[in-house]
Design a binder for these strands. Structure first.
Length: 598
RNA sequence: GGCCCGGUAGCUCAGAGGAUAGAGCAGCUGCCUUCUAAGCAGUUGGUCGUGGGUUCGAUUCCCGCCCGGGCUACCA
């Protein structure tokens, strides 16, 4: 579906005149840069060779053709660009005058819609989630949301790491120092309580290593990892892991109890973020998967046995990867091969995406290479959405040094500050419950928006002081534009101003701010498609800001309720409603809610 | 050492062959008896790390170098 009729006309003209210009060619217009006259710009560099001419000549020809179109007021060729000034009616017809069509243009055609599985979050059950997880969660949920918005069928999957030596660390610390504490008895959220024992473990271990080094000076140069099994605590932890694997009833019971606390805590964190997974896989149930694939791959020659007995995959430039230890036990990638197959069986996705930090880039390159080697036809559509670390002005976040920004505390702080802001603005008649509701929407919106503004691959800087400011390029800026529109609509109802959608005279909206606003809205489908193709929503964040900015300019220059005529008031009111629809749709795609008032 | 990612305004980040390199913050000037000032308008600020190359055209692509980060386990 071609959005602008004048562009179809131009394509048809070139196709008619030049045999070398394919009929189905879509000439995608660009926005005219600020400061230049025009609404749309045609960049003739992009297709001039299809017309067999030089770009300047093609531009001159295009300008002449476009100038004769009914939707065009002026078309001027500048070098290889044609700047087109459209009639207000044509601008709005392609955009805010028909939001249903605009939204439909933002979807992939049926034939391009697919089943996509997105795995994200993947926390460990030994500590609460921190800002790094929040970035992961936000990227994952917004990517899933975008893919749904564009028309795909999406499965959101979590894979919780609920077993292993690190889980035993908090267990053994609790066993020794917990004195029967529970979330109920302490009033501490389950994941935070378990996290305290993880911290306790590391403190005790550190003391023991210090003592060990004092007693045996020859160990002074060794790091704590190497000395782990030299400590009593380390050996006890190792023993607990072995007992867990052997199915020891006592260890399993403790494990289940503490994991249940953590899961309850994670549920609350996810609820606050608005996350719902289709399914959560547990590593305790999947960690033995993959071994059967290794054996059959060994028989078919995909894998080979090394002289020391280990089974390896030879991956060319990536090198050799051990997929089974010489003692026959699994490594991490063995289990990942297994869970990839399990997810494929369970959901038959045509594409799978993993949202995982960039330190695992090589791991995923190897995993994907192995899946291809195994010959699965879906192995070409596996993607690692790799994202960078979150740093603080004080440096890197480190759990052990207590410099992590806790997710739940961050949510609470953002929400509290936003609620306070609402309270200052609101009248007496607004209830505390309503203020808290708005505060949560604004606070969480600000946080998600900030995290999504960065390209995923960038190692981002999180400045706590900057994050709690709700001015400038922020989520609340966009939400505020919506709130202003809602306010106008409330006042319109009070004053009995209304519009009949079928009889709005869009041609009345010819001021620069009105055309700019609609023109920008016209590019929403393109923004959605770009984001989906790149699997990156950061351009949508920029888009939302641009549109909100264009609205605020309109708001300043074009009075709605006090417009010169009732017809103009009705048209502007219709435009406001349409802008609110688009802004709400963008924010919703970014998993951000919109408050009625701020 | 090898591989990957980054280096753009004082700070945090956009831009990924095309017209004059953008935004927010910070700084400076204005605007609240008029639909919410979490707003608007204006302004200061750049050899796009560096040296070559390809191109009509390079901040964008290619090569070298410098700086920062990550990875380079029979850990997860």
């Amino acid at each position: 579906m071609q959005q602008f009729q004048l562009m179809s006309a131009l394509s048809a003209y070139f196709a008619e005149k030049y045999p070398s210009f394919p009929k189905e060619t879509v000439i995608a217009p660009e926005r005219t840069p600020a400061g230049m006259a025009g609404d749309l710009t045609v960049n003739c560099f992009r297709f001039a060779k299809l017309c067999g001419g030089n770009p300047m000549a093609v531009a001159a020809e295009a300008a002449a053709v476009l100038a004769g179109h009914a939707d065009v007021e002026a078309a001027e060729a500048v070098k290889a660009f044609v700047n087109v000034t459209m009639t207000p009616e044509a601008v709005h017809r392609a955009s805010l005058g028909n939001t249903a069509r605009l939204f439909e243009l933002g979807k992939f055609p049926e034939a391009e819609r697919r089943r996509i599985l997105i795995e994200y979050s993947a926390p460990n059950t030994n500590k609460p989630q921190h800002l790094g997880h929040v970035r992961n969660n936000t990227l994952g949920m917004s990517l899933a949301s975008l893919m749904k918005r564009i028309g795909h069928t999406v499965f959101e999957i979590n894979l919780v790491n609920d077993r292993g030596i690190h889980i035993c660390k908090s267990m053994i610390a609790y066993q020794r120092y917990g004195e029967g504490e529970t979330p109920e008895s302490t009033g501490i959220k389950g994941d935070h309580l378990v996290g305290l024992y993880y911290v306790k473990f590391n403190a005790v271990l550190s003391d023991e290593i210090k003592a060990l080094k004092a007693a045996r000076p020859e160990l002074a140069a060794q790091d704590s990892e190497e000395l782990f099994l030299e400590t009593e605590l380390g050996r006890a932890t190792q023993k607990m892991l072995q007992d867990w694997e052997a199915g020891d009833a006592g260890v399993r019971a403790l494990w289940r109890k503490m994991n249940d606390w953590v899961f309850a805590g994670f549920d609350a964190t996810y609820r606050t973020m608005g996350i719902h997974f289709n399914h959560t896989y547990l590593e305790s149930e999947t960690y033995l998967l993959g071994k059967d694939i290794i054996s059959s791959g060994l028989e078919s020659g995909v894998f080979t046995r090394r002289s020391d007995g280990a089974v390896i995959a030879s991956l060319g430039k990536l090198g050799d990867k051990v997929v089974l230890r010489s003692d026959g036990t699994s490594v991490y990638i063995t289990q990942d091969i297994g869970t990839t197959l399990l997810k494929q069986q369970d959901y038959q996705p045509q594409s799978m995406i993993w949202v995982v930090g960039d330190e695992q880039n090589l791991h995923f390159q190897m995993l994907f290479a192995i899946m291809k080697k195994l010959g699965y036809d879906w192995a070409d559509d596996l993607f690692h959405l790799s994202y960078g670390m979150v740093n603080l002005p004080t440096g890197k976040m480190k759990s052990r040094e207590g410099t992590v920004v806790d997710a739940d505390e961050l949510f609470a702080e953002m929400t509290e500050l936003a609620t306070e802001g609402c309270r200052e603005r609101a009248g007496e008649e607004v209830s505390p419950e309503e203020l808290a509701r708005r505060g949560a929407i604004i606070g969480m919106g600000a946080l998600k928006f900030m995290l999504l503004k960065f390209n995923a691959r960038t190692t981002m800087m999180f400045d706590p002081a900057a994050s709690v400011r709700f001015e400038g390029d922020t989520g609340p800026y966009v939400q505020y534009a919506c709130a202003r529109i809602s306010s106008i609509e409330r006042k319109a109802r009070e004053r009995g101003v209304d519009f009949d959608a079928a009889h709005v005279d869009w041609a009345l909206l010819g001021k620069e701010e009105e055309k700019d606003l609609s023109m920008l809205a016209a590019f929403y489908p393109a923004a959605l498609r770009t984001a989906a193709e790149r699997r990156d929503v950061s351009n949508l964040v920029e888009y939302a800001l641009d549109l909100a900015k264009a609205f605020n300019r309109f708001y300043r220059e074009c009075p709605v309720l006090n417009a010169e005529t009732s017809g103009l008031a009705a048209a502007r009111l219709a435009m406001c409603a349409a802008v609110r629809e688009v802004l709400t749709d963008v924010l919703k795609t970014l998993t951000i809610e919109v408050p009625d008032a701020m």
